[in-house]
Write a protein that binds this DNA or RNA. Structure first.
Lengths: 181, 181
DNA sequence: GGCTACATTCAACGGTGTTGAATAGCCAGA
DNA sequence: TCTGGCTATTCAACACCGTTGAATGTAGCC
């Protein structure tokens, strides 16, 4: 049974999404979400049970990058790297927020699921040749490493030589996993 | 001025190190650290000022992997990957704990510093040829991606084909950044 | 013994997630 | 129109959190 009026639930979820992405899981309190939604501080828990459940339901969906995958597979490596470097601000906060909250069991599950459904699986279906699954997983690790270096570590000097150089070099490595081995 | 008896400080730091690595930054409370050290719940903050300062001082140092770097550079890529896959349990909890606490300012700084001093700099000094700095940073990202996939995401199927295959394939990519371009 | 300086404890504050009871608001039936 | 009940929302309280400043113990020195 769903509790609460639909609009109130939506207001809470909207406020939660904004605050969690801005301040992180620990930094955004349930009461701050409630007051941003204009309701009593206890209502979010009443509706969603726990802060973690609220967090998971409030998370935005992954941006859709199907077009990226459907293009020419011969330069998918470079395009993928470029996508990470030039993404429009939707992926980065989601990635960082999930990552840092991933020590609570269900959030870790969600991160694993997103990694699987948005990186590994789409890549695997587009790979021809042997060991497609392994190559997709290694490619996903490679992409994760770029996001890690840029966003978690904050290695600003990585881009000092210019985005193009990174796109070419890191993209070339990624491409070797994409090309049929 | 350092406050407190040296043994009491050490007891607190030891308890803090164990609890932070086991339960994470948020999961280990200051009071739980204090009671594990056998002191009053307010003492850790009295000594170290804030939970974050206690955390930073309690963190273990990075394992020393100099021998790994000093070996034959022609197969450093594979050896590096093998080191991550077979590490003895010191690096992984430190990496995970730092990563997940990296949204508080000083912890992010520490993560950046460790990334720089334990991955980028040692690699860079061993690289010959042009663009050593960039190649070291890309190599560090690659290594980070492996740790991310294995430890944060928990991609267990990555090793389904056997450690050797991962060591060979991912190591080969890493090696391309190590070899003079 | 009394004084001092320091190590440690105690008590309290505001904030947190979470809980169950109390209230407010609406809608059906007499 | 009144009344009952149902549901949405609020209120009050709990235990725990990081943090603070005052109180207490405790050792050594004159």
């Amino acid at each position: 049974m769903i509790e609460g009026r639909a609009e109130t639930r939506a207001a809470i979820l909207d406020a939660a999404r904004a605050l969690f992405l801005e301040k992180g899981y620990a930094g955004a309190s349930v009461r701050s979400v409630a007051s941003a939604a204009g309701v009593d501080g206890a209502l979010p828990i009443h509706y969603f049970g726990t802060k973690e459940a609220l967090f998971l339901q409030a998370l935005p969906s992954m941006p859709d990058y199907q077009p990226l995958l459907e293009g020419d597979p011969d330069n998918l490596g470079e395009r993928f790297v470029r996508y990470i470097l030039e993404e429009d601000g939707h992926l980065r906060p989601l990635y960082l927020t999930l990552l840092r909250a991933s020590d609570t069991g269900a959030v870790g599950e969600q991160l694993r699921h997103l990694h699987e459904t948005t990186f590994v699986e789409p890549l695997e279906t587009r790979l021809t040749g042997p060991d497609a699954n392994l190559r997709a997983r290694l490619a996903a690790a490679l992409v994760g490493g770029l996001m890690y270096a840029l966003w978690v570590v904050g290695d600003e000097q990585l881009l000092a030589a210019g985005e193009d150089v990174v796109i070419r070099r890191y993209g070339a490595l990624l491409q070797q996993l994409i090309d049929p081995a």
